[in-house]
């Protein structure tokens, strides 16, 4: 933590960056985002197991971009998100550097290739627990799965906190706000809730970096991570692709291979 504060102080004092985006203690035992713009404020930064938020979401906000170059305290999924945003041509290499706190100090990654090398060395797979939860779902009957999701989605409020939290939901005009035609009904009823959640998942398929922020943001605790992880695992098994591995990469759903699986097509 001290190394992180020291690094932040140095980056701000030497004007290498104009803002350090990190974590500070928040309410209810959770951490909140902290924007450090003066070297003197760097002492407020913390980093521990409560610091879960994917801070890359802020890189897409115009008001944050206007602050100047940013140093971002990054967890493994944050690094993948940076690369995914870069692959979608949303980030300039010169606009950020990533600070990775570790056991022996803090690593400062200032180029996409440095981030790529770091990501390639970290574990990007679904965890054993995540995989076994997906297997449990696969073993359930169709009706059981439908009932499970119907109950979950029936609680959705259409608050779109999941969308606001997601660094990859950056469209300035979302299909949800489109009313000619009205793709997603405005009121929170079962049909519209299902349509919304299918759309959210599909629009993130092959892009989601499994940071978990959408699930954490959901005020009614819908396990959105299950949908994301299902799609991550399908993209990997069907196309052998993972999101967020490289700053230049084809998006798995806007490219193809002539021999993609088609056993389900007549």
């Amino acid at each position: 933590m001290n190394a992180l504060r020291e690094k932040a102080r140095e980056l701000l004092a030497t004007k290498t960056v104009q803002v350090v985006i990190g974590y500070a203690p928040g309410s209810g035992g959770a951490a909140r985002a902290l924007f450090v713009r003066e070297a003197a404020q760097a002492g407020e930064l913390v980093f521990d197991e409560t610091c879960l938020q994917n801070l890359a979401a802020y890189l897409m906000k115009p008001e944050v971009r206007r602050l100047g170059r940013a140093a971002l305290v990054a967890r493994p999924a944050t690094l993948r998100t940076i690369l995914q945003l870069a692959a979608e041509n949303q980030l300039a290499e010169s606009s950020l550097l990533a600070l990775v706190p570790g056991a022996d100090g803090v690593l400062s990654l200032s180029t996409f290739s440095a981030i790529e090398a770091h990501v390639a060395a970290q574990d990007n797979d679904l965890s054993a627990a995540e995989k076994s939860e997906l297997e449990k779902f696969a073993a359930m009957g169709l009706d059981e799965r439908r009932e499970f999701w119907q109950e979950q989605f029936s609680r959705c409020l259409k608050c779109y906190a999941c969308r606001a939290a997601c660094p990859l939901c950056y469209c300035t005009r979302c299909t949800v706000e489109c009313n000619q035609p009205q793709w997603i009904p405005v009121p929170a009823h079962d049909l519209g809730n299902l349509e919304w959640n299918v759309m959210r998942a599909m629009h993130l398929a092959g892009r989601c970096t499994n940071c978990g922020d959408c699930s954490r943001a959901c005020p009614v605790g819908i396990p959105l991570y299950l949908l994301n992880q299902k799609l991550c695992s399908d993209v990997l098994s069907s196309f052998n692709q993972r999101s967020g591995m490289a700053a230049r990469a084809d998006h798995s759903l806007s490219t193809f291979k002539p021999d993609d699986p088609e056993d389900f097509i007549r």
Binding site: L142, L194, A201
Partner: peptide, 26 residues
């Protein structure tokens, strides 16, 4: 080819949500 990729993912999602994919024939 692009559509095929989308169908692969969409079918998997429908099935995961408990919607019978036998109702959609590609």
């Amino acid at each position: 080819f692009h559509a095929r990729r989308r169908w692969i993912i969409f079918r998997g999602l429908l099935d995961f949500l408990g919607i019978d994919v036998r109702r959609v024939q590609f």
